[in-house]
Design a binder for these strands. Structure first.
Length: 273
DNA sequence: CTTGTGCCCTGACCGC
DNA sequence: TGCGGTCAGGGCACAA
């Protein structure tokens, strides 16, 4: 489910409830969702620790804990993190509950692609290093020049590159299609064929589309809700994603859907060249 | 290096 | 009502 704007929204909505609180109890209903270390160890290490800060790297949520430890969460396709009152009933597919002072965090994930990790500071650094993430697209380190460097000498289609977390971190299938539409670029355009003007258009589209996604509290096409259980509204602003057979908002040409890299890809055959 | 495929899972939806 | 097929915001292993 969640791409950068959704994880960012979840992080921001959970922040006021979680920061400064101590984890009093950890309930694991499904040990498989804990990737590292083992479930028993995970529970023992987490209990009694204080939450100091919430951060995000790509689609990963990073929870900074006392003693230089980290709880790291990836929500996969359908993962949710919900702040609920103490003793709230557990929805179906609630795999883990963190009891804090004054409430609980429920990790709910029907498809179970989401994973949780407990890391020491050096282990987190190693993990991030191993993932080899590209730059965060909304930070100052990400510039048009940087994007130009990333695209140079690569023949892969733009869609594949936008989905590749090692190039730019955080973009998923919805926002990749929306970004390419905003930039007027065909998803299958080889990266190295872009002119400087097109690189600039792509750069500004990446920033603009992701920022709009965050401003709208994420895109809810199916399961996504923020930390308070509220749906986003960016689905009302989508131009191409999920709109096969409907008119392009710019020119009226029918939006096309193609299968690429195992994912649906939506684009306007007239506006995107 | 690159691409495509299948898999991990559940649930919603569609056609018959 | 039921059944099978298809599809879904992700990511990984593996084959060609």
């Amino acid at each position: 489910m969640p791409e950068l704007p959704e994880v960012e929204t979840i992080k921001e909505t959970l922040k006021p409830f979680l920061c400064g609180k101590t984890i009093e109890q950890v309930t694991v209903n499904r040990p498989e969702v804990i990737a590292e270390p083992g479930a028993a160890e995970f529970v023992a290490l987490l209990r009694g620790r204080r939450i100091l800060a919430l951060e995000r790297r790509g689609k990963f949520l990073l929870v900074k804990l006392s003693g230089s430890y980290w709880l790291v969460i990836h929500l996969g396709m359908t993962g949710r993190l919900l702040w609920l009152e103490s003793g709230a009933p557990q929805a179906a597919h609630t795999h883990l509950v963190l009891r804090l002072e004054g409430g609980e965090v429920h990790f709910v994930d029907p498809r179970r692609f989401g994973r949780l990790y407990f890391f020491s500071q050096p282990r987190l650094a190693e993990f991030i290093d191993l993932k080899d993430f590209g730059p965060e697209p909304l930070t100052p380190e990400f510039t048009p020049e940087k994007l130009g460097e990333l695209l140079r000498d690569r023949r892969r289609p733009l869609k594949a590159l936008l989905l590749d977390q090692r190039l730019i971190a955080g973009i998923g299938n919805i926002y990749a299609d929306e970004i390419l539409f905003a930039a007027g670029l065909h998803p299958l355009r080889p990266a190295s064929s872009l002119k400087e003007k097109e690189i600039n258009a792509l750069y500004h589209s990446i920033r603009k589309v992701l920022a709009a996604g965050i401003a709208h509290g994420g895109t809810t096409v199916r399961d996504y809700v923020d930390g308070s259980g509220r749906a986003g509204s960016h689905q009302d602003h989508l131009c191409v994603y999920g709109r096969a057979g409907q008119g392009c908002p710019a020119c009226g040409t029918l939006i096309e859907r193609r299968r690429y890299a195992g994912r649906s890809t939506y684009f306007c055959p007239r506006c995107q060249v």
